[in-house]
Design a binder for these strands. Structure first.
Lengths: 264, 264
DNA sequence: TGTAGTCTGTACGCTGCCGTACATAGCTAT
DNA sequence: ATAGCTATGTACGGCAGCGTACAGACTACA
């Protein structure tokens, strides 16, 4: 039992929302948290599915993806260790019109729906925290809508890379252009072209599903305003005055899952 | 005091969310509800504003609009008498990145933020109801993002007309093409063209800011799937088993503000 | 070592929407 | 009535992104 996953299991702070809960709530949740490995492409729930679990990502990235009747898709929002998968559980709907799919493999804590709801209803702190998080999710969705309307693929790719980067401990993503295209809801060729430009500028480097960000500052400059808007609002909403932590990025330092850059 | 607005004030059921609350909660809210007239174009809150009131629309339509740095805009979602303006009040953020602007003039109930929060924290029913509504709002935002990515102006105009229509007691909208263009985030000329096609097909009739829908069935057929997805999910979420009402449209019958078609 | 499969690069015509410009038609106020 | 404003119609070049097609590069596995 002394393998690495055990070490993770002892660190519920690996997820920001859990870390932000009062210690007594954390203590009560802990025995009910299951550590699960989530491979790339795994579907946590399908559109319309009744949710049975909520997931607290540790080092994976999950996309909320809408799939249209004709099969075309578009990403609605991205969730990493700052969030939770399954807000419909406490929002009351029980299901959503989107699919939750693993965009970057890793671990998460899984909690049964009933246990979660019990806790949710008992504790105002948890409720307030989750509602604030949900609002940040709403902000991200709204901005996605705006971005889809007004910005070029080039800009959107920058935004998307930054959002993903913020949710990973490395500057390196395991991600084919095909997959990114599905997320952005554009052609793969469009991503190839946009990525080519970024590579020429020395902003990124990639080959066969590995993207390394070399110049984050320039990436932010090339992105549309949407990334900054979402980040600023999320920081505002999720700032936890009690601990003084105000930047989501600092949260990444909390979880101690060591993984070599680009090793996945 | 026996003018029409008095009659309205006695009918808090004019708003679905209020109507869906237990009668004792309604009774306690009632004295705190202010009836306010909201003219076209009025801004209820600006991006970043700290909310001081929430609004329960009765017969007006409010758009949540995101305005970009360069002034271009895009509608994130539409709210009518099925909803509430100011979810950030109970979601905990206190403000949002969007603007709330009156898209169709009419009346609403206004409630001070503090009174609202008191009630919100005291009553589980209200909390659950509002969270479910917020989820339906999330669905609408998500679908807007998808629609912006994948569908033509023609289709989006149909979707937009249907969403607006569902929130009005008549089949007639007071709405210039310029305004619609702002909502959809496209050129006014694009709306002119799309509207021209619909007019040729006999689906709508319009002149100088008055749009009358003549053939709603055809309008639904011409719309992309997005309208149906949002409507179905909203109906699911907001169905109130206690009263058996399952269709938002039936709510329109509840509020007794009589207005001649196209008279505003 | 070779072969199959996956990922990426490039090209080309097409279309939807944009930016811009200007014309016409209907309402409104003096 | 007539001037002025607002709303709508039309036109045209430009371009971003699409659909399609195919070639080259890298990987994995036999």
């Amino acid at each position: 039992m002394l393998h690495s996953s055990k070490a993770i299991a002892l660190q519920p702070q690996g997820n920001f929302l859990i870390a932000a809960l009062p210690v007594d709530v954390q203590a009560r949740l802990l025995p009910n948290l299951e550590l699960v490995a989530l491979p790339l492409g795994k579907v946590l729930y399908e559109s319309g599915d009744t949710l049975r679990y909520v997931y607290f990502p540790i080092d994976c990235i999950v996309s909320l993806l809408y799939v249209m009747e004709n099969g075309a898709s578009a990403e609605i929002s991205v969730v990493g260790n700052e969030g939770i998968i399954g807000v419909a559980m406490f929002m009351g709907g029980g299901s959503t019109t989107s699919r939750a799919i693993i965009q970057s493999a890793g671990y998460a804590y899984r909690l049964s729906g009933q246990k979660f709801k019990d806790e949710f209803n008992r504790h105002t702190e948890m409720l307030m925290l989750l509602l604030r998080y949900t609002q940040s999710l709403i902000t991200q969705m709204a901005q996605t809508a705006v971005c889809n309307r007004h910005h070029s693929i080039d800009q959107q790719l920058c935004r998307w890379l930054l959002l993903s980067l913020d949710r990973l401990p490395t500057n390196c993503l395991a991600m084919t252009q095909e997959l990114i295209a599905n997320m952005l809801g554009v052609r793969r060729e469009g991503v190839t072209e946009a990525a080519g430009k970024l590579q020429k500028l020395g902003v990124i480097e990639y080959s066969r599903g590995k993207i390394t960000v070399l110049n984050r500052v320039l990436l932010e400059q090339l992105s549309c305003e949407c990334y900054a808007v979402v980040k600023k609002e999320t920081d505002r909403l999720m700032a936890t005055p009690t601990t003084g932590r105000s930047e989501l990025q600092q949260i990444n330092e909390l979880h101690s899952i060591s993984m070599p850059p680009c090793a996945q």
